[in-house]
Amino acid sequence: MRKQTEGRSVQYARLPPGAYEFKIFAGDEDGRRSPPLRSIHFTIQKPCWNTWWFYLLVGFVSLAMFYGVVSLRVRAIRRTAREKNRINKKMAELELQALQSQMNPHFVFNALGAIQFFIRNTEIEMADDYLAKFGLLMRLFLESSKNKFIPLADEIRLIQLYIKLEKIRFEDRFDVSYEIDDELVDSYTLIPSLLFQPFVENAINHGLFHKKEKGYLSFAIKEAEEALICIIEDNGIGRERATELKQKSTKNYKSRGTQIVKERLEVLEKMTDLSIAIKTEDCFPGRDEPGTRVIIEIPFLE
C-alpha cells in the first residue's frame, strides 16, 4: 500500500490485523525514488472479539446461562408441583376428616339406638322408615364426600334428611322452617360439598339440645348479588354457654366439625380462587339464650 505525502505524517485507517513492514522512501517530482530510508516492523493484533478464546468464552457463558435458566425453570415447576401436591394432600385429608365428622359416631349410634327402640316396641313401620332414611343419609354423605362440589339440590336434600332424623330422635323438641329459593335449586348451582351440615349439626346438638323449652331452627337459601347466601338460625342457648357446657362435662372434648369446614374452604380457595365467607353471630344479642346465626356466602361458580 503506497501513499505519497509532502507533510511529515501519514495515516493508514482500518488496517486489517496482520504483520506489517513500514518503509519510507524519499522521492522527487520526476518520480525517482531513493532506497528505503528506514524500515519499521509492526503487527496489528486481531481485535479481542475476533480471537479463538473469546469465542470459546462466549460459547461457554451462553451455555452456562442456558443451563441456569433451564434449571431455574425446572426448579420452579417442581416447586409448584410440590405445592400443588401438598395442597391436594391437605385437601384429601380434610375431606376425610369432614366425612368422619359428618358420620359423627354419636349421631350414628344414637340413630341405631332409636331404630332398636322401634324394633323392640314393634313399631315396624317407624323402624323401617327410620332405617331407610338413615341408610339414604349415609349414602348421601359418602357420595358428597367424593366430590369437591355438589349440586345445591343434593346438599339441601341431605340437610332436610338429616334434620328429619334428628327431629325423630329428639321427639320434636324443636320446630324447623325452610326458606329455599326454588329457582336457585332448579338451576343446577354447584357448591362445595359437606358445607352446611356441620353448622346445622351444631345448631341442633349444641344450641337446641340444651334448651329447656321447645326450640326452633331455620334454614334459608337465598340469592344475593353474584352470590348464594345460606342462613342457619337457631334460638338455642348460644355459642358461649354451649362452649362452657362442653368444657365442663368433658375436659378433652373437641368438636371439630366447623373448624374442618373452615380449613377446607381455605385450601379450596388456594386451589380454585373461590372465596367463601362465613359469619357467625348471636340472633338475639343480650338475651339469656341468644341463639346463633350462621351466614355463609358463596360466590356463584362459573
Partner: peptide, 30 residues
C-alpha cells in the same frame, strides 16, 4: 350426654354415691 348437665355432673352433685352405676352411652371415647 344429656342437656345442660351430663351424667357425670349429676354424680358430682349427689351427696352419696353408694350404688352401682351402669353407664349407657351412644359414643363417648373419652
Amino acid at each position: 350426654a344429656m342437656p345442660r348437665e351430663s351424667g357425670f355432673d349429676l354424680l358430682e352433685r349427689l351427696p352419696k354415691l353408694d350404688f352401682e352405676i351402669i353407664f349407657v352411652t351412644g359414643f363417648d371415647e373419652y
